[in-house]
């Protein structure tokens, strides 16, 4: 037999049931969509500004900035992709020779 819910849980459930549908319907409104869209833009711009500022400061002292690391990471990824494509090509050639 399961024990009855404690008093605090009953109060919590009551409050939650009261506010949850309102919050859920608020998330679905056009105003909320605009808010999220604006916050995403704001975050993007803030990150961009931060990167630009730190880039200038770090470059002054000859240190690499995040943007440099991004570029390097992209280059490594491209290189990895090329190696993968080449290995695939070799595998295919081996298979066709064997066949």
């Amino acid at each position: 037999m399961s024990s009855p819910k404690p008093l605090w849980r009953n109060i919590f459930d009551l409050v939650e049931k009261g506010i949850a549908p309102k919050l859920e319907s608020m998330v679905g409104t056009s105003e909320f969509a605009e808010l999220i869209s604006a916050l995403t833009k704001l975050r993007y711009e803030a990150n961009k500004r931060f990167e630009e500022t730190t880039q200038n400061l770090l470059h002054m002292w000859n240190f690499p900035a995040v943007t440099d690391l991004k570029r390097l990471s992209d280059q490594v990824s491209n290189l990895e992709r090329r190696i993968r494509d080449l290995s695939r090509l070799i595998e295919d050639m081996k298979e066709s020779q064997a066949g």
Partner: peptide, 30 residues
Amino acid sequence: DRFDLQKLIGWDGNVSAADIANSFKLLKPT
């Protein structure tokens, strides 16, 4: 259409795991 998808893409070219987690939290705020 008002939502600029490119702004969701992080510096590594992917949508971050935190944004994915937050999007699920929005479905059930409580």
